[in-house]
């Protein structure tokens, strides 16, 4: 058979072709490509700059009443003024762990953007079903697993590219790396993002693959994404949240991913914490990907 029709016996054949088909829809369509980049920039610009929490406590610009009492500095701070300044200046550092809220927030966007990219990529399988493409592929020798992996892989590659881009853009907007930052740490960011995306996209594909309509999975996903976004440390540190919300955040893989990214980029890196983060995200990825892939596999070979 092999020499007559040239078919390969490699079990992974078709994986790159299918993945690249997904990716082409993205990088070959400039509008979609640009929009997918603009969205995180908007979040960064609007949330990161609009919620300029640092400025609240800056004596020079804040209208916060206690700070008004501090007279404009003309000759350099006196003893008491210097103390106040130090106190309020240390405030953002104390709350967010970084010198400014923008850095805190911009890095939070990294994991957050993956949530959306993997979600939309999950939706694409609904189109593949509706338009018959999925059936077409199912009738070829491509293995069922490869079909699912190609979706996961394309979503993951897209998210990781976006993560890199967000970091570059955030740098232009004034992201400050932590002390002791090493460019190699970026690889760590990609590694943890890889784990998160594999988990998330498997989850979303398992949700969407049974559906021939957009509406149902959309509703389910909205239900999932909102708490995943806000019951995490992406925008605000969990330690100031109510107890019940802290508990939710503790089970949220977004929390660990974001923390890992922050530890690597803007905090004074605590390697023990990074290890814990990787462990949690890794466990999440393995469990969810296994469940997601098994469910999808079953569906495809019913």
């Amino acid at each position: 058979m092999t020499e007559t029709n040239g078919n390969s016996s490699n079990r992974l054949h078709g994986l790159w072709a299918l993945t690249n088909r997904e990716l082409k829809k993205w990088y070959k369509a400039p509008v979609i490509f640009i929009l997918s980049i603009i969205q995180p920039i908007l979040w960064m610009g609007l949330l990161g700059k609009a919620l300029n929490i640092g400025a609240l406590f800056d004596p020079a610009s804040s209208s916060f009443p206690p700070l008004k009492l501090v007279p404009p500095l003309t000759t350099g701070p006196t003893g008491q003024e210097a103390q106040l300044l130090q106190y309020f200046g240390g405030f953002t550092k104390y709350v967010f762990g970084s010198a400014d809220y923008f850095s805190f927030m911009a890095v939070g966007i990294v994991a957050f953007s993956a949530l959306f990219t993997t979600m939309f990529s999950g939706m694409s399988i609904v189109w593949d079903r509706r338009l018959g493409f999925l059936n077409k592929v199912l009738s070829t020798p491509v293995s069922r697993g490869v079909i699912i992996f190609s979706k996961v892989l394309s979503a993951t590659l897209r998210s990781m590219f976006q993560a890199g881009l967000i970091i570059v853009i955030a740098l232009a907007f004034g992201l400050q790396f932590g002390q002791g930052f090493n460019p190699l740490y970026i690889l760590g960011v990609f590694a943890v993002m890889f784990l998160l995306c594999v988990g998330l996209s498997s989850l979303f594909i398992a949700i969407t693959i049974r559906s021939t309509r957009m509406e149902t999975p959309m509703a389910v996903m909205n239900l999932i994404t909102l708490p995943m976004m806000f019951a995490s440390n992406a925008f605000f540190p969990t330690k100031f949240m109510p107890d019940w919300l802290q508990t939710v955040a503790k089970f949220n893989p977004m929390t660990y991913t974001t923390d890992a990214v922050r530890q690597l980029l803007i905090f004074a890196t605590d390697w023990g914490q990074v290890g814990t983060d990787f462990l949690y995200v890794g466990i999440f990825a393995v469990i969810v990907a296994t469940i997601g892939i098994v469910l999808s596999w079953r569906f495809l070979s019913k």
Partner: peptide, 18 residues
């Protein structure tokens, strides 16, 4: 979004044809 030829080649990849 793909051309006619690209589509045929995509199909050929499904069969692992060199």
């Amino acid at each position: 979004d793909l051309t006619g030829l690209e589509n045929i080649l995509l199909c050929s990849d499904m069969y692992g044809i060199p």
